[in-house]
């Protein structure tokens, strides 16, 4: 129990810290991407050196945290634990500009790339020249890029020329289209963490067994991720209930949240009842 708690703490520490790391690399990427699309190589160098510094600090931080004892550590399900470990390992990996392939995530996501209009990309991109201009006229012309205040271009997330069948991390790692959350997580680490924990996004199928987790791109178009307004389903015809109209009680929402752990109380209550 203790060991696993420690491990978990370490993971969480690392996650939080990596959040920071991502923040920094986001800042960097924003500068760099905007200014230097053509100078791709210099961008990568900047980022690499920045992140290896971060990584060293990261390790120290982790060791510090292992000494600390904290009770509220969340113990992850083995599946999630593995993801978190992998996400961490992924971002810690030294990137010598060679393209690495990532292991498939240990939870089910509904596959994506099979549905694309344009897959496999290499059908065309084997011969396609890289477009240096920020305008596409021949193909993908309806694609609107409205993400991150226009600070990045296709090549922030896609490989130039070859390897178009994969997404591209900021460190030039290969990311499968069916694991695009790893791409988003580079810049939206807080959201990704929530997503891994089940507080953002959606999981379907089962609450008790293996979940199917929807990828970010099921809800957010990666090229224009803001969710657009739409008409809701029909307006209810009207509710015939005595309560609605005649209520004279003030219906205020009480936002004060009790700090006592409700679930502990509930657990206790049910235990008592069951042992009766």
């Amino acid at each position: 129990m203790r060991n696993s708690e420690k491990q978990t703490m370490a993971v969480i520490g690392a996650i939080l810290f990596l959040g920071l790391l991502m923040g920094v690399s986001l800042l960097l990427s924003q500068f760099v991407v905007a200014e230097a699309q053509e100078k791709e190589t210099s961008q990568i160098q900047t980022e690499d050196s920045a992140s290896s510094e971060q990584e060293e600090e990261d390790k120290e931080e982790e060791e510090d945290e292992e000494d600390e004892e904290e009770e509220e550590a969340v113990e992850l399900e083995p599946g999630f634990q593995k993801v978190v470990d992998e996400v961490r390992a992924f971002w810690k990996r030294e990137s010598e500009s060679e393209i690495e392939e990532l292991v498939i995530s240990p939870f089910r996501v509904p596959p994506r790339k099979e549905q694309y209009e344009y897959y496999p990309c290499m059908d065309c991109h084997e011969e396609q020249e890289v477009q240096p201009e920020r305008e596409l006229t021949e193909e993908h012309e309806d694609l609107v890029l409205d993400h991150g205040k226009q600070r990045f271009w296709c090549l922030t997330c896609h490989f130039a020329g070859k390897e178009k069948n994969y997404l591209r991390s900021l460190k030039e790692q290969k990311i499968d289209f069916n694991e695009s959350h790893l791409l988003c997580g580079q810049c939206h680490f807080e959201r990704q963490k929530d997503w891994l924990m089940g507080a953002h996004g959606k999981r379907v199928g089962s609450w008790s067994e293996e979940r199917t987790i929807l990828l970010c791109v099921e809800c957010h178009n990666p090229h224009s991720p803001a969710i657009k307004p739409q008409l809701p389903d029909p307006i209810p015809k009207g509710i015939r209930e005595i309560r609605m109209e005649r209520s004279n009680q003030p219906h205020k929402i009480e936002t004060k949240h009790e700090l006592i752990k409700v679930w502990d109380r509930i657990a206790l209550k049910y235990k008592n009842e069951r042992t009766k």
């Binding site: 969340v74 113990e75 089940g198 507080a199 609450w207 219906h251 004060k256 949240h257 009790e258 409700v262």
Partner: peptide, 19 residues
């Protein structure tokens, strides 16, 4: 304790109606 809902209750600002 490992469920998603527990993660939310322990890590997010939560409230209930008419507490």
């Amino acid at each position: 304790p490992k469920s998603e809902i527990r993660y939310i209750l322990e890590n997010k600002t939560v409230f209930r109606l008419k507490e």
